[in-house]
Design a protein around this nucleic acid. Structure first.
Lengths: 211, 211
DNA sequence: CCGCAACCGAACCGAGCAGTTTAGCCTTTT
DNA sequence: AAAAGGCTAAACTGCTCGGTTCGGTTGCGG
């Protein structure tokens, strides 16, 4: 099922022919690695194993190709985030699992690339940053809130401002490591590091919102 | 006093002549607005009110000019962050003040621009992202830690992992608003919003680390 | 076997841009 | 007054890159 969150651009007019997916996949690789300006159409064609003429048979211009790639990635993220959280297990355990999932994903190369692209290309393509924000952080926040409501209903948490609580939780989960990844200060993250950050995040969160 | 943290590049060889600062200032504006690739040297010269020949009399090439601009900005930030925190007032008040200061600064246009530049140009100039991280987040973290140690010594806080506590504090302070600013989802922030986030950040932090 | 459509690759066009050069202007120094 | 040095405007070089065109090839359906 495809999330309906991503309204970036109209479809690229023509998708008949075998090489369509090749083009998109090649473009994705090159765009993620080099950004919009940095990626040359010749590079993309080469990477996709396709001639430039073929590429331009599918997409009217570089910008539309880029938008399509970004749109697909946003949808992919939205779909991935769509399985909701069940708060049936002990709260601390669930929170740990969720925090680990969030942090691990955010440290992933694709997630980092997508973030860089959004920031770098915000001037040229504001819709992409917006769509990514909706599909990623905002979607995640909503799910967290929902889980929190269940837990509060069961008397396991005590929350007034659900939205901010959710944001605080994911910010705590990202603590230290995400910023270091984004700045390129650190690129490898051990399980110990991740586990430690997650553990402390849950402790702090529960100190405030636990019962 | 100039902070010694920023080791990006050697000085630009020649700074005789009146127009030197003009060039740097013009370059700063254009680079911050358009990024490295996006900024054309002609634009910079025009913005600086200077001929291209003059510009190239000072700087050997565009990259060196860019590095110099970034270096200065990093130094500026490092200097600004240099006044330390006195934890003499009631902890909650001090934390509120510090959080407000951090958040307000991070939502500032220059801070946002500098962040965008670091991320966008990480591929070409990794040293800049690194220097900014050192001058900004890392510097701030150290100061926070120091303040925390005082407070712990006076029995007003209870902390095991100072580093992570500091990171958690600044992450809590950024909650929600910073991410929205970075993605361009929101550009104006009311005092109420800021105050609310700060307030909740301090509450959560003290729930965990307060005595 | 014919025809058609997708595809190739390589040449090509035009625009934009980093960096250079030239010819000359203005102000300060000697 | 002449020399020298900082500056300017504008033309120019060389390159990259987005996008187009074209002649030729592959492969598939009838």
């Amino acid at each position: 099922m495809s999330a309906t969150t991503c309204q970036i651009s109209l479809p690229p007019i023509k998708r008949t022919g075998r090489k369509f997916d090749q083009v998109l996949e090649g473009a994705r690789k090159v765009f993620m690695a080099d950004g919009f300006e940095g990626a040359s159409v010749d590079d993309i064609a080469r990477q996709a194993g396709v001639s430039k003429a073929t590429l331009y048979a599918y997409f009217p211009d570089k910008a539309r190709l880029f938008s399509e790639v970004a749109r697909r990635d946003c949808d992919r993220i939205a779909d991935a985030a769509l399985q909701s959280i069940d708060m049936s297990a002990p709260v601390a355990d669930v929170l740990s699992a969720v925090a680990t999932q969030i942090l691990t994903f955010l440290l992933t190369e694709p997630a980092q690339s997508m973030f860089r692209i959004c920031i770098s290309e915000r001037g040229r393509f504001p819709e992409i940053a917006h769509a990514y924000y909706e599909a990623g952080p905002e979607m995640g926040r909503k799910q967290l809130e929902e889980g929190f409501r269940d837990a509060v209903a069961r008397g396991e948490l005590r929350i007034e401002d659900y939205t901010l609580a959710a944001e605080q939780f994911s910010d705590l989960a990202k603590s230290r490591l995400w910023l270091r990844a984004v700045f390129g200060v650190q690129t490898k993250f051990s399980h110990q590091e991740i586990a430690h950050v997650v553990d402390e995040a849950v402790k702090t969160f529960l100190a405030r919102y636990g019962t």
